[in-house]
Write a protein that binds this DNA or RNA. Structure first.
Lengths: 221, 221
DNA sequence: ATAATTATTTTGACTAATCAAAGTTATATG
DNA sequence: CATATAACTTTGATTAGTCAAAATAATTAT
């Protein structure tokens, strides 16, 4: 059985792979993500390669094998189902469940996980809109547009937030920018690095920097 | 923060202390309980003594300090609340929740624990009738009688089962001998090492060996 | 093309938790 | 009482995961 440490490395390799279209992930970057020294990342990745969870090319980086991806998706399934469970069943706040799930994801048995899945009626996204892999390890990642790229004056719905920082999530909650909220982009100014939007339900006008807008993924209505 | 390993040693020292009226616990016994070699138990207990969780007397044994007891009760609170939660909210079977809780008890945060406590409406016993310590670390241990010692023909209620073995618990469930079930002791034969009882609701007559009867704690009605 | 910088790997050391086996102490038995 | 046995402790080794710092390789700048 994979240790929590291994599960975490594999999970982060998967997520970083998603961000970089499956490029080999260099050890420096992995070290930063895992908050360890580069030497530690190198030696852990060698161990992962021995277990055939990654392919490792010295001085180039590591990439998950099929088996590694499978493990990553199982961890991600636990993480995201637990997040949703904490929000729906235990009424924890949206902004705090990520940290909690970081610990729980390594100790939830398959039996408990399937009970949670059933209780939540087989959901397919977590509270941040991240897709929940199936128990077979399938994941359907919709390609959303981000709020800084989408067309002006188009009605859209928030589908996913790609940042787990609690204070950022609390900010979004205060501004009413949570998944399923409908809104329209009013203006964008690349020089000012800002975009203005209006929410439908509350008619709130909000101005965001483009780097923040990029973290909010939407789909057209 | 105490590691899972430390939490487990401290928890077992507490439970064994309960069974032996606070005698010093010898290393051989601790080793058996923890499924490690005696040398491992000795060295771990020395580490616990350095952290002031136990008092250790070489060649005599170890006993929890006040701080150690406090930690043990916090672990036990997590364990027992989680057990009840798994039964009530996730519909796991009575017989299997002990093993699940063994893993979860080390990673449940205070925040999640208090949510569970609230959801279950501040219960005071777990599914086996074991008392749940308060968040301050108080525990009220009622002194129940066991089924092999109690008076013949007296109406009693099952209050607690002092064995967590899943197959034993499944047996009790099949026989309808679960907490809160009411019954009467019909006969006892010390030579045959057996006792016969009848359940009130179902009028089932069941014969148990005395060692099994000793694991079933009851209170008079 | 050489030097300087940056990224990566290697080496040696450390901690927590464990075991096997040798050594020590206490207890029980002849 | 002497010794055999059982309980316990010590010692030396191992594994997983980590860091600091030295060594190496690759990249960038001069």
């Amino acid at each position: 059985m994979a240790s929590s440490t291994i599960e975490n490395y594999v999970k982060q390799l998967y997520l970083e792979g998603q961000r970089t279209s499956n490029q080999k992930i260099p050890m420096g970057r992995l070290a930063k993500i895992m908050k360890v020294t580069p030497g530690t990342a190198t030696s852990m990745v060698k161990a992962l390669a021995d277990s055939e969870l990654v392919i490792y090319e010295p001085r180039e980086g590591a990439r998950l094998t099929r088996g590694g991806k499978q493990l990553a998706l199982h961890v991600l399934r636990r993480h995201r189902l637990v997040e949703l469970f904490l929000v729906k069943t235990l009424a924890l706040d949206w902004s705090e469940v990520h940290e909690e799930a970081e610990n729980l994801e390594h100790v939830i048995s398959d039996k408990v996980l399937e009970k949670i899945d059933k209780l939540l009626d087989y959901p397919c996204v977590d509270p941040h809109g991240d897709p929940i892999p199936t128990s077979k390890g399938n994941i359907t990642t919709k390609q959303y547009e981000n709020l800084s790229d989408c067309r002006l004056h188009q009605k859209v719905k928030i589908s996913r937030i790609v940042d787990q920082d609690p204070t950022f999530l609390q900010f979004l909650e205060r501004e009413g920018l949570t998944p399923n909220v409908k809104l329209t982009l009013q203006s964008r100014d690349d020089y000012a690095d800002a975009t203005t939007l209006i929410t439908h339900a509350t008619s709130n006008t909000i101005t965001l920097g483009l780097s923040t807008a990029k973290k909010i993924l939407v789909e057209p209505l």
